[in-house]
Design a protein around this nucleic acid. Structure first.
Lengths: 244, 244
DNA sequence: TGCAGAAATTGGTTGGACCATTGAGCCATT
DNA sequence: AATGGCTCAATGGTCCAACCAATTTCTGCA
């Protein structure tokens, strides 16, 4: 085991200090996602702090999604950590009814359109190629698996958010996605949910590839509209069949 | 001390289970913000779990801002807790620079416009009157205190988000607001920050009052644009003056 | 009655122990 | 030599018992 560049910390505000020290360590060693941190026991020893304190600190990071712990293996970085990073916990009340689902879509409508527009402005050659790749994979999956391409669909969208240059889009829309899918198996019994949105993926891509922000925005809005329609249709069907 | 309605939990996934049990307890007892939770020792005893495990669970909640611990006093609820809540830590990398501020504004631009449009559609007489009241208070404060009306300004906007009929708008934009202001005392040294946005508050209100969603959206976009301009001007000034 | 000091309460930290999972190395069988 | 199973050390997860530090509550004296 190598010598870790860690020195003891002083009293009070232990776990916070532990995080600062750790963040500094991660930066100095230029550790990135996937790499392993020193073990809890080593951290405790080097920082002259009890292992419990180290654990509380790491628990915080785990809660922020910065770190992943694997019993028997170690603690691994999941994201980029830096001292001046800002964390803002967002708590959303989620219901599982039709109204809540529509509400997540209203947020997505706003963000998706903006992200697509920004993406069209900012995408370089490499980014456009990446989006095209994701689109191909999705269309492939859609055709071979008769429309079951939720996973690939989502990855396509994510590549757009990422290319928008603003990480908040991906984070917030991911939260909406999570809220939406938490109650969604075959949403409201509509089997071919999402089919109608399929063609718009390519049109969005085309507008982005030609750096047409308003066009991309318009296509994104159409896509969300089809999902909203599906949802409404499902709700109406449910109402007819007498289910709650 | 009263009998808490808590029963022991079973093995593995302890701290997660603790949080679930606690969330259930909070809901059953209808505890709200400001109220005190059982002490760690009592929780540990009732849940048949070590105090360390309870602490790790509470550390998670603390990280999410759901709970506040006060040494010697107790652990208090800071927000509303419910079982089906989604907790999403937003991470803004890069720190206190111009880019981060602009990123929060990009989100606000998307959401603010949509919220204003929805508000124009859905606002009833009572809601419109409430927004008018907030607008009056803000304008009053603006004139008497020479532009220092941040608080009243924010309340005006909040009344719009609320009237949009979708609570997610208020929650997410509040998070952006918080992120924005964490960097911001007199943002980038621009003293009259926000002055330019003043007239658009009234124009937004007018579009809402006349149920003109696209007009409201357009005015909201103009408002955000002035803030972005202020920010850019501040950044340019800073660059000139040689500060980092 | 009022207030200062003592005592109890409560979160924060420590150290040490043991459990459960993982992963690497070792060995026997094939 | 390759494969499969075994052992064992490393690592995170949990537990316990004690003590520290801040806060609150109680007590008793003035």
């Amino acid at each position: 085991m190598t010598e870790f560049g860690l020195s003891p910390i002083q009293a009070t505000a232990r776990d916070d200090a532990v995080l600062k020290a750790l963040a500094g360590f991660v930066m100095r060693e230029a550790l990135g996602p996937g790499q392993r941190l020193p073990t809890e026991r080593i951290l405790a020893e080097r920082l002259k702090v009890s292992r419990n304190t180290v654990r509380e600190a790491l628990t915080r990071w785990e809660g922020l999604g910065l770190v992943e712990r694997r019993q028997g293996s170690g603690t691994y970085l999941k994201g980029v950590v830096s001292l001046d990073m800002l964390h803002m916990p967002l708590t959303l009340a989620g219901g599982n009814d039709f109204t809540s689902l529509m509400q997540t879509l209203e947020i997505r409508r706003a963000l998706e359109a903006e992200a697509a527009a920004l993406c069209a402005v900012r995408a370089g050659q490499a980014e456009i190629a990446e989006i095209a790749r994701k689109l191909d994979v999705m269309e492939q999956a859609f055709h071979t698996r008769a429309g079951m391409s939720a996973e690939e669909d989502w990855e396509f969208h994510q590549s757009i958010y990422r290319t928008s240059g603003n990480p908040l889009f991906e984070q917030i829309i991911a939260a909406m996605h999570e809220l939406f899918h938490r109650f969604w198996e075959h949403p409201l019994g509509v089997r071919d949910f999402g089919h109608a949105s399929f063609p718009y993926h390519r049109t969005i891509y085309e507008r982005i590839a030609t750096h047409d922000p308003e066009g991309a925005r318009a296509e994104a809005l159409k896509l969300i509209a089809t999902v909203e329609d599906d949802l409404k249709r499902g709700a109406a069907k449910l109402k007819l069949s007498g289910q709650k």
